[in-house]
Simulated assay, not measured.
Amino acid sequence: MIKVLIVDDHHLFAEGVKSMFKPEDGIEIVEHTKNGNTIPSILDTMTIDTILMDIDMPILDGIASMELLKSKGYDVPILMLTMHQSMKQIKSALEKGAQGYILKDASKAELVQAIIDTSQRKNYFHSKINEQLFNYFRGKNLNKNNMQELSEREKEIIKCVADGMNTKAISGILFISEHTVKTHRRNIMHKLQVKTSPELIKLAIEKGII
C-alpha cells in the first residue's frame, strides 16, 4: 500500500481526492495538511511514500516547501497536483526536485498511475505538461541551432537593434540599403522563431551575442 500525504489548503478538494481511492488501488491517503510548514513533523511521525502537493498555499507554498524539505535532508518523492501549467511554474517545481507534475483536472486513472510512478521514483507528467515540456525544449534546441546559423552581418544587425537603432540608422551605420536591413531582420526573426524586437534582444542576451 502506497502511503500518501496530501498538502493542499483546500480541505474539500483533499477530502475528494482521499475518497477516490479504493483498497484495490493500492493507495492510501494517510494524512492531510494545509501548508508546507507542517510537513517535517508529519514525516517524523509516520511513513510517507509520496507527497501530493499543490503550489498555491498560505504561509509556505509548494515551491518553498520543497526547498524546506531539501534543506532539512528529507528525501520523499513529491508529485505536484495543481491547476498551474505555466512553463515558469513547471520549471520551478522541477528545479526544486519534484518527481512529477499533474493537473487537477486529471482522471483518477492518471492520478493513480502518477502516484505509483512517483513512489517508485519515476518521473510522471500530465499529458498537457509533457507537450509543454517537449515544445519548450524543442524551441530551446531550435533557437540554439539557428543561432549558430546566423551570419556575421545578421549578428551585427541584432546588436544595432539592441542599441535602439531603427532601420534607417542601421542602414547608415552598416552602409547597406534600408530594404536590405528589413530583409535581414525578417530572416533573423524567422531563423530564431521570435516575433518582436524585445524577444529578439532577450534571446540574443541569453545566447551571448550582445
Rank of each mutant, 00 (worst) to 15 (best):
L111T: 14
A109P: 13
Q132L: 04
S107R: 13
L111W: 12
L111Y: 15
T118V: 09
F125Q: 09
L133R: 10
Y124L: 01
A114E: 11
N135R: 02
R121N: 10
S119W: 15
F125N: 08
F125M: 08
S127Y: 06
E131Y: 03
K108E: 13
K108R: 08
L133I: 09
R121Y: 14
F125C: 08
V112R: 04
F134L: 03
A109C: 13
V112L: 05
L111P: 12
A106L: 12
K128I: 05
N135H: 05
E131H: 02
I115N: 07
N130G: 00
S127F: 04
I116E: 06
I129R: 05
E131I: 00
N135D: 01
N123I: 07
K128G: 00
E110Q: 12
S119D: 14
K128W: 03
A106E: 14
S107P: 14
S127G: 04
A114V: 08
Q120C: 10
F134V: 03
N123V: 06
Q132I: 04
N130E: 01
T118G: 02
S107N: 10
L133Q: 06
S119P: 15
Q132K: 10
Q120W: 13
K128P: 00
H126F: 06
N123L: 05
I115G: 05
N130M: 01
S119C: 14
N135I: 00
Q113L: 13
N130H: 01
A114D: 11
I116L: 05
A106P: 13
A114T: 08
N130P: 00
E110S: 12
S119T: 15
V112F: 10
Y124V: 00
N135Q: 01
E131K: 02
Q113M: 14
V112K: 04
A114M: 06
D117P: 06
T118N: 08
Q132V: 01
F134Y: 10
E110I: 11
N123G: 06
F134Q: 02
E131V: 00
K128R: 08
A109T: 15
L133N: 05
A109G: 14
Q132G: 01
N135C: 00
A109L: 15
A109K: 15
F134N: 02
N130L: 02
S127I: 03
E131N: 02
N123C: 07
Q113P: 11
A114I: 04
I116P: 03
D117G: 03
D117C: 04
I129D: 03
K122I: 08
V112Q: 07
K108D: 12
R121M: 10
Q120A: 10
I115H: 07
